[in-house]
Computed example of a mutant assay.
Amino acid sequence: MGTRERIIDAAEQAIHEFGIAGATTRRIAVQAACSEALIYKHFAGKEELFLAVLLERLPALAPALAELRQSVGKGDVAANLTAFALTALRFYARTVAIGGGVLGDPPLIAGFRAMLAETGAGPHLPILALAEILRTEQRGGRLDPAIDAGAAASMLMGACFHRANLACFVSLPDDDESWAGTVVATLVRR
């Protein structure tokens, strides 16, 4: 394993153990068995390092969106969307520690916003991609054309995000799979 990978692994571990605020470059360097200067040789700042943790170590939505795109016109639309919703829920559950910490740190969120703008990335992109998939299913006659695809995508992703956050505070009454199926069935009702 290379130095960059060790640093990312150490950052992920530090975030899960100490939160964003406690994931200092000093702690990360000790865990990665390197100097703080070496961290900055590989990453411009903590924002870039934390984004690398998000993009490279946590479950990603891009493969799930690609799989959903491949299922357009095939199989059961509700089942396909439910499988995607479960992946989105898992993604948000794993990223809640980073997201919450970033939101609570004004300089860090400013750095993240600037970096996302520079790279053209951001949390809105999966919603846009999902909306386009829903529109394609509408054009194929598999979803009600009266559904606002953009709103439905926002609601589905928002519901997944909300449930992941709620689960940090309380035990939820129903299992994730039945919850996802119910949410999808509500959104795609014909």
Rank of each mutant, 00 (worst) to 15 (best):
L89I: 11
G101T: 02
A110D: 10
E48A: 14
F161I: 01
A88L: 07
Q70S: 12
A117S: 15
A121F: 08
D176N: 07
E48R: 09
M1D: 14
A64Y: 04
D176E: 07
A149L: 12
E67R: 12
M115Q: 15
P107H: 03
Q138G: 14
H42G: 11
E36D: 11
A129E: 15
D176Y: 00
I20V: 15
P173V: 01
P123A: 11
L116S: 04
V72L: 05
Y92F: 14
G75N: 08
C168M: 13
P173F: 00
K74C: 04
L116P: 05
L187R: 07
R190G: 13
A64T: 03
R190E: 03
S178L: 08
L116N: 04
E137M: 01
M155A: 14
F91G: 03
H16K: 09
I15C: 13
F169C: 12
F91C: 11
C160N: 08
F50N: 02
A159L: 07
I109M: 10
A11M: 05
R189E: 14
G22I: 06
H42D: 07
E118L: 01
K46D: 02
V53N: 05
A121S: 15
S154F: 08
I127R: 14
E132W: 05
V188C: 10
E47Y: 02
V102K: 01
V30T: 09
V188N: 11
I7P: 13
C168D: 14
P173A: 09
C34F: 03
R163N: 09
D176V: 00
A60K: 09
T95F: 02
G45P: 10
F169I: 05
L125I: 06
A164P: 15
E177G: 06
D175G: 10
V188Q: 09
F43W: 06
E47A: 14
V77I: 03
A97Q: 08
R139L: 12
L166M: 12
L86Y: 01
L172S: 03
E118Q: 12
L156N: 06
T87K: 11
L81F: 08
S154R: 10
A33K: 06
A37H: 13
L172H: 01
A93D: 10
D105I: 00
R90P: 06
W179G: 05
V77Q: 08
A62V: 08
D144H: 05
F84S: 12
Y40W: 10
P107L: 01
P145G: 10
I20E: 01
L51V: 03
A62K: 11
L54K: 12
